[in-house]
Write a protein that binds this DNA or RNA. Structure first.
Length: 463
RNA sequence: GGCCCUAUCGUCUAAUGGUUAGGACGUCGCCUUCUCAAGGCGGUAAUCGGGGUUCGAAUCCCCGUAGGGUCACCA
């Protein structure tokens, strides 16, 4: 009765019929945490009794995603390799008249003449769910359900019950969609004389429309792989999934897997389903992104840039810490780098921008002559800086001193625009630092020249 | 439809009979700023409805209602 006395053994039992679903990932996570908390063992069991729908590539994918998440398992089984065991128990059921071979109408396509049905004792089943409390079912309506297509072809309910027993599973933690399967499985357990594990049915993860997240209805966004490819960090995923349906009772919400193991409480898991909120996932990822060290950031930026702009990889800009910080500040996940590239927001770091002369002066005081003056003056200031002074703070201090005298917008807008050719961008100090003195001066001088020519043209036209 | 589960801001949730119903995401505003991003500060917003029980109900009970899950020779 008191499961604390028994060794805790849990299992995560996906069927390899598709990519790892975020809901399944959370089930795996809760199993994992619970197991570690109780110093137990966790089993990964591939439920591939449906030979037609199960695929090795999905199994590989499942394992790859679990690895990525950092969830490890103590034992591994495949149901397709255990048919002899199921057969033994099936024969036992038939011998004891708990199940029988049933002649069926084989007219329906895909159906066969004989299947094995469980002899339903038509009782009421009551079980205690860790999360929901007492649940009562009348099993009469279930009828004599089919537990195997044949002695060598067990179906889900039979395989689950046999395996949970054979593997000494003490706690079954699974999704709420299995709650109505539980009475059926308990019936089989009792017929076989097996002990009953502790059940915990965790709530479903819902889509925005509040229906169960399904690949069919909601596409790729249901898979862990999707978020992995978007550049969400595994630690973000773990943290986010844990927070979906659980909280520590106080206001903390950033937790590592290890921290979860110390503070998680399965009894505090919510009863109702939880909508998967991608905005919050992004926000959380941003928190984790910021805490990465420079090397990790630099490596990932290179990796994602390589996908879109291989030509940029040789640039020394990539190693510049100011550049790295600038990028990380502007993304929520690595995949956002693609957007940055696509929108041309990074071009000016790697090649001279196209500057439109009429956009150089600040709109509040579009005087070309003073704009030229500011550009030249700024060039002088920058030119006076030695190599050791080539630092964002120093560049900023020097330029700001001048900008404060002459009006910030009036000075800073042209400086920045001449450097980037964009109305929106990072500040001119950081960009100057990244570009280097020579390139910065070059861009300012080029713009100055263009503006001068423009003025001359105007003067001639007037004269 | 039968059975089962669930019900606090738009979303994730706190408050285990007594709180101005708290926090986070989003959103909005302000500050910081030449612009963008980041950051800081602040605002908006909820107890599904109706009956009980109680001095007192988001909290306990009943009835509705709504949403969801499940009803395979899938898992």
């Amino acid at each position: 009765m008191d499961y604390k006395l028994k060794k805790v053994i849990t299992r995560f039992a996906p069927s390899p019929t598709g990519p790892l679903h975020v809901g399944s990932a959370r089930t795996a996570l809760f199993n994992y945490i619970f197991t570690k908390q109780n110093k137990g063992e966790i089993i990964l069991r591939i439920e591939d009794t449906d030979r037609a729908r199960s695929k090795k590539e999905y199994e590989d994918g499942l394992i790859s995603e679990l690895n990525w998440l950092g969830l490890s398992f103590d034992e591994f089984y495949r149901q397709s390799e255990r048919t002899a065991i199921y057969k033994k128990h099936l024969e036992n059921l038939i011998k004891n008249e708990k199940a029988y071979i049933s002649k069926e109408d084989a007219e329906k396509e895909g159906s066969r003449g004989e299947v094995i049905r469980f002899k339903n004792p038509n009782t009421k089943i009551k079980f205690n769910d860790v999360i929901r409390g007492e649940v009562l079912f009348d099993t009469t309506e279930l009828g004599d359900f089919i537990i195997a297509k044949g002695l060598g072809e067990p179906l889900y309910h039979l395989a689950v019950v046999v395996d949970d027993f054979e593997m000494n599973v003490s706690h079954v933690i699974r999704g709420e969609d299995h709650i109505s399967n539980t009475p059926r499985q308990i019936l089989i357990q009792e017929a076989l004389g097996f002990p009953r594990p502790v059940y915990a049915h965790i709530p479903l993860i819902l889509a925005q429309d509040k229906s169960k997240l399904s690949k069919r209805k909601h596409g790729d966004s249901v898979s862990v792989k999707h978020y992995r490819e978007q550049g969400i960090l595994p630690q973000t995923m773990i943290n986010f999934l844990a927070l979906l349906g659980w909280n520590p009772g106080d206001e903390r919400e950033i937790f590592s897997l290890d921290e979860l193991v110390s503070i998680f409480d399965i009894k505090k898991v919510q009863k109702g389903g939880a909508v998967f909120n991608p905005e919050k996932l992004d926000w959380l990822n941003q928190q984790y992104l910021n805490n990465l060290n420079r090397e990790e950031k630099a490596d990932k930026i290179k990796e994602y840039l390589a996908k879109h702009k291989e030509g940029w990889l040789k640039s020394p800009v990539l190693g510049n810490p100011v550049f790295i910080d600038l990028i990380v500040e502007r993304i929520k996940k690595w995949g956002d780098i693609q957007e940055l590239v696509k929108n041309g927001e990074l071009d000016y770091f790697f090649e001279a921008p196209t500057v439109q002369a009429d956009k150089v002066p600040w709109f509040k005081n579009p005087d070309i002559k003073s704009t030229i003056l500011h550009l030249s003056k700024a060039s002088d200031i920058i030119n006076g800086l030695g190599n050791t002074d080539w630092d964002v703070k120093i560049i900023k201090d020097k330029l700001m001193k001048y900008a404060d005298e002459r009006g910030r917008g009036e000075v800073l807008w042209p400086l920045r625009y001449a450097l980037t050719g964009r109305e929106k961008s990072a500040d001119p100090f950081s960009i100057a630092k990244i570009l280097g003195k020579e390139e910065t001066l070059l861009r300012w001088q080029k713009t100055t020249k263009e503006l001068s020519e423009k003025i001359q043209g105007q003067d001639q036209a007037i004269g």
